[in-house]
Design a protein around this nucleic acid. Structure first.
Lengths: 232, 232
DNA sequence: CGATCAGTTGAAAGTCCTCAACACAGGTGG
DNA sequence: CCACCTGTGTTGAGGACTTTCAACTGATCG
């Protein structure tokens, strides 16, 4: 059962798109599966980059910590997405930390195996180029947001993005389907948890969102999007 | 003469490292060379991504413009570096604009050619992964700076980076070897030209830098680095 | 030599952060 | 079962940092 799910996940990733069933089977044999509880670490910033991971189920948070201990969230990684891209590039060390934010299952693939696959199957190497280029573009967009938008718009954009990636339709609106605290949002938008709290309170007063302890529901996505695209 | 220089540049890029002399010769034949004067555009945000460029000489500025016309500088690109990475990933459109900031020479390579080379020579595709991953890491670092540091430290980091990439030793200190205005620095650090001007004036008063019309010289790199790494 | 571009600086205003105090939920252990 | 402890969230007050607005200076270029 799980074996099948695993293969499904692998062939549904952008990275392995187009790889032959035979190669996928071989890959699956050399991959390791790991179950994670909430808060379990996958790898740490500064670890040797020996293995990267495909998320089969659940969600990881990828963070970087500065010399003086401040943390920023680079990204959340969901099913069929990758964590540990440094391994694809052959870098020595993981530049970031990955942690499960929900019960998760990941498939680990070693540097040796993926490098060999890329060397033998150029289409996989070219997929890797596309995957990393997509992340690069994402990062450019966030940099642009950080450079040009005020805090409120950045929070709005961030919540809308998360709702798109990990939203669950409910009676009350679109619920972000993993625990998300004020502090988390602050680390994604370059602000403080206090400012996030004030902003969400204001939105709650206007009926745009409904939020509480590590929980955010977007009640009026369209109005929130208007706010995100307004000047300022 | 130029032919030789051109081949030198191509085989000195990280992208084509390890490619055989024969393939390099073939590549050189299908590449186009273009001379650019200061301010000449190379490609525009939104253009079809048909060609990417290796800088043979000079320097390009890569920017993104927001819907409301604000500009941010993604990066400066110097000799042996690439502009137009979207082409490598097979994306449809250039997400950014590249412009010469000095008299330059670039070598253009079409999407069809590079995709074919990557398909035939997996080592080039893997090089491409490394090149883009390095850019991704750079972008992560800048995002972290934007998220956690005040304006003064961001400007300090930015100037030190430019001095490292494009610095020229002079009697007075390390001079950034291309025209760089207050506005440019503002677009790299997410602030305004006024704040950059005030900051540089203060530094000038302390003898850290020497700057003027589109010109920055770092007089005391070490002290500037201390400032860049201090808290705040 | 006039027009334009780049830079400087003061004053006022605004955004956002810091500090502080409190509220509330959920789990733990007595 | 309840008291406590910790993690999370809220909100006020004050202040720091940065922007905005404005006026001015000097350099560059046709």
């Amino acid at each position: 059962m799980h074996g099948t799910a695993e293969q499904d996940i692998l062939c549904r990733t952008d990275l392995f798109r187009g790889l032959s069933p035979d190669s996928l089977r071989a890959l699956r044999r050399s991959a390791t599966r790991r179950r994670l509880a909430t808060q379990d670490p996958v790898f740490h910033q500064g670890d040797r980059a020996e293995t990267f991971y495909v998320v089969a189920e659940g969600r990881l948070r990828v963070t970087q910590t500065t010399a003086d201990g401040q943390q920023v969230i680079i990204r959340y990684v969901g099913p069929a997405e990758l964590a540990g891209l440094a391994v694809l590039a052959g870098d020595d060390l993981h530049p970031s930390t990955a942690t499960a934010v929900a019960d998760s299952e990941v498939i680990g693939i070693s540097r040796a195996v993926i490098r060999e696959i890329m060397a033998r199957h150029p289409e996989v190497a070219m997929n890797a180029v596309s995957v990393i280029a997509a992340r690069y573009r994402e990062m450019q967009q966030r940099l642009r947001e950080m450079s040009t938008q005020n805090v409120e718009r950045r929070i709005a954009h961030t919540i809308l993005r998360l709702a798109r990636e990990a939203g669950r339709r409910t009676a009350r609106g679109i619920e972000i389907a993993f625990p998300l605290s004020r502090q988390d949002l602050a680390e994604m938008t370059g602000t403080t948890l206090h400012t996030v709290s004030r902003t969400l309170s204001a939105w709650e007063g206007r009926g745009l969102v409904d939020s509480g302890r590590r929980r955010v529901v977007v009640r009026r996505p369209h109005e929130l999007a208007m706010l995100a695209d307004a000047a300022g």
